[in-house]
């Protein structure tokens, strides 16, 4: 025994007994576990750093049984993307399909959604599986906001300035909420260039946070829409080609959502 060590002979014996009992217990895993070995397992695990292993195993078994019995899973599902991509239109479509009511107001002028909107407890079904989620509709993320752009679209100067100010706050909030998401649908306007830096930055940040992503190539009802370009820009992610406004291809969209979020 090391003379400088603070370990008392009594402690050493307890530690040795714990190691022994745990190793004996591990050999008999699945058989009858006595109460004292369970306690000793808890005593021993912090000593060898095995706590995280137990947590992982518990999670693994929990997920296995959840999948086995198709139990419901509740996730926070975010709608992200550049302004005017159709996030609120898609949110309205989802809410209409499963709740029978709309979620927010849409407009052809950018930054109509300037506050985070949350719809709690939406349950969607596909076969035997069920997915329960809170839908979070976020303001469009942009790198610039100029009130004059709103004036050009017909708003009065005072109204345009107010809208611009609210829109900047909306972008900040949307970024702040990013960490809270369990799964994100990135809604892109399929008629526009998908290689914009905002799209790349959003998707890159979701990947960095290990948040599952589904890309919704929206506005497929328009002639200029190019689904291949969207798919080519982000080949590592599933792409659902939809028209949220017309409700086209929503079945396929929900199936993709199940694969990504469930």
């Amino acid at each position: 025994m090391n003379p400088n060590s603070t370990e008392t002979p009594k402690n050493r014996i307890i530690k040795e007994q714990n190691i022994y009992k745990v190793s004996r217990n591990s050999r008999n895993w699945g058989r009858k576990r006595s109460k004292d070995t369970t306690v000793l397992t808890y005593l021993y695990l912090p000593l060898c750093g095995g706590g995280s292993m137990i947590t992982k195993l518990t999670k693994m078994f929990s997920n296995f049984f959840k999948d086995l019995f198709h139990s419901k899973k509740h996730v926070k599902l975010g709608l992200y993307g550049p302004p005017n991509g159709g996030k609120t239109t898609l949110a309205n479509r989802i809410c209409k399909d499963w709740l029978g009511e709309e979620m927010g107001k849409v407009s052809h002028i950018e930054h109509e959604t300037r506050e985070i909107q949350v719809k709690e407890q939406i349950n969607i079904k596909s076969g035997k599986k069920e997915l329960s989620f809170s839908l979070v509709d976020t303001p469009g993320i942009a790198t610039k906001i100029d009130y004059e752009d709103f004036v050009k679209k017909g708003l009065k100067a005072a109204e345009a300035k107010k809208r611009a100010k609210e829109a900047t706050k909306g972008v900040i909030d949307a970024i702040r909420w990013l960490d809270d998401m369990d799964c994100v649908i990135v809604v892109l306007d399929a008629t526009k260039d998908p290689y914009s830096q905002v799209n790349i930055t959003i998707i890159g940040n979701l990947a960095a946070r290990s948040i599952p992503v589904l890309i919704a190539a929206n506005k497929m009802d328009l002639r200029k829409a190019d689904k291949d370009k969207v798919a080519a820009a982000f080949p590592q992610y599933p792409v659902a080609c939809i028209s949220a406004k017309k409700g086209t291809n929503m079945e396929e969209f929900y199936e993709s959502l199940f694969k990504v979020a469930a």
């Binding site: 993320i141 972008v171 900040i172 930055t201």
Partner: peptide, 16 residues
């Protein structure tokens, strides 16, 4: 870095 890119957007919005 990716986190810096999104932080740049956020800070830009704060300074508009």
């Amino acid at each position: 870095r990716k986190e810096e890119e999104i932080e740049l957007i956020k800070t830009t919005m704060e300074e508009i």
